[in-house]
Nucleic acid binder design. Structure first.
Lengths: 112, 112
DNA sequence: TCCACCTGTAATATTCAACTTACAGGTGGA
DNA sequence: TCCACCTGTAAGTTGAATATTACAGGTGGA
């Protein structure tokens, strides 16, 4: 059975982006909320007790790291709602994965 | 065969500390250097091309997260050297581990 | 003695993520 | 029309992490 998870080789830059994206109290809670199913921005802001512009920034950060995915959807009554859903991720963190990331950087610079 | 690695249940606070500790370009390289064996501070600073006071701060951060461990050692000729070594860590990052961390927080607050 | 190493910290700048506030615009329904 | 929702962004502020510089002190050996 296949699933769309990662465990691909990340460059250190990508690794750092993911670590920074997950590593924030609000973003942890965003991930937790989205784990239960998709939610639109205003509703999510209400649940977390966070201002909407602030939530926007956090969602942006999570989306850039490809941990969540947002999509504009029209509700039955014609109102536009921005739904976000979780991108199931799987990342292992050990000395070896750190070494692998730094090795991946050197591969990168060779293709320039 | 046993090893001293983690995969214990972390609170979100502990999880965030580890993520922040690993999530910095210099600290990634520190981990990589120490993966090959213990190194003393001045030597490590030279290898990374980083000032010693700056390196001190990064090592402090890594040590607080228990990712590295420092110990003062006397060389054969009587000079004091501060050696750092890597604490082998193993951390899995998925939506479920995030949920588990937030659940662990609630356990914490009940024991107050 | 002086030099070449080393440890350790305090005080200060600088940079950047995080957060707030305020705005402009859209829809459907009362 | 007004109200209650929604999306989206452009300021500006603040505060913590990062980084620099400068200092005080120790050792062994030439």
């Amino acid at each position: 059975m296949e699933d769309g998870c990662e465990d691909e080789v990340l460059t250190s830059e990508e690794l750092l982006a993911v670590l920074a994206a997950i590593g924030h109290p609000i973003r942890l809670r965003v991930i937790a909320e989205l784990a239960a199913g998709q939610v639109h921005v205003s509703e999510l802001a209400r649940r977390l007790g966070v201002s909407r512009p602030l939530l926007y920034m956090h969602l942006e950060r999570l989306e850039k790291a490809e941990l969540v995915h947002g999509r504009l959807e029209l509700s039955p009554d014609g109102k536009a709602l921005k739904y976000f859903e979780l991108a199931p991720f799987h990342l292992t963190l050990t000395p070896d994965t750190v070494l692998a990331a730094l090795r991946a950087d050197q591969q990168e610079t060779r293709h320039d």
